[in-house]
């Protein structure tokens, strides 16, 4: 299966990356990691790319890392369609201190607009 994982540097996006690597190595999936600047998080694409690369190296798993510009949600949806990915994977759903789960705006957009199946890891 051809997987497109979106990573913007949130804690949950790194968790999603680790889980996806685990499953992809078992299933022999082909993984592309699309890195973007997430306005809701204090980090930048370069830092995210570095950490994604380190995580891949540690797991000894090869994947393409690609930086995407523009609106992350719509770019993920477009890339998945135009390059015939089988699935989009995203980590989202942080809890507030009170404990309520809230999806980030990028995950919301992808869930509502993707024609590709979406796996949300939280």
């Amino acid at each position: 299966m051809k997987l497109l994982l979106g990573a913007g540097g949130s804690k949950l996006s790194y968790q999603a990356l680790e889980k996806t690597i685990e499953r992809a190595s078992e299933a022999g999936d082909d993984l592309t990691v699309a890195v973007f600047d997430n306005e809701e998080i204090d980090t930048n694409a370069d830092e995210v790319i570095q950490r994604v690369q380190e995580t891949l190296d540690e797991a000894d798993f090869e994947a393409e890392i690609r930086q995407i510009d523009g609106d992350p949600g719509s770019r993920l949806v477009d890339i998945a369609e135009s390059e015939t990915f089988d699935r989009i994977v995203l980590g989202s759903g942080e809890r507030s201190t009170l404990g309520k789960i809230q999806l980030g705006s990028i995950a919301e957009f992808v869930l509502l607009n993707a024609q590709t199946p979406v796996t949300l890891i939280r």
Binding site: L98, G99, I101, Q102
Partner: peptide
């Protein structure tokens, strides 16, 4: 339940109550 609270399992309820 709404937005994941209250949690369903008793251990998770206890942990959540400790916070709030």
């Amino acid at each position: 339940r709404a937005q994941g609270i209250p949690p369903s399992r008793e251990t998770a309820i206890e942990r959540w109550l400790n916070n709030i």
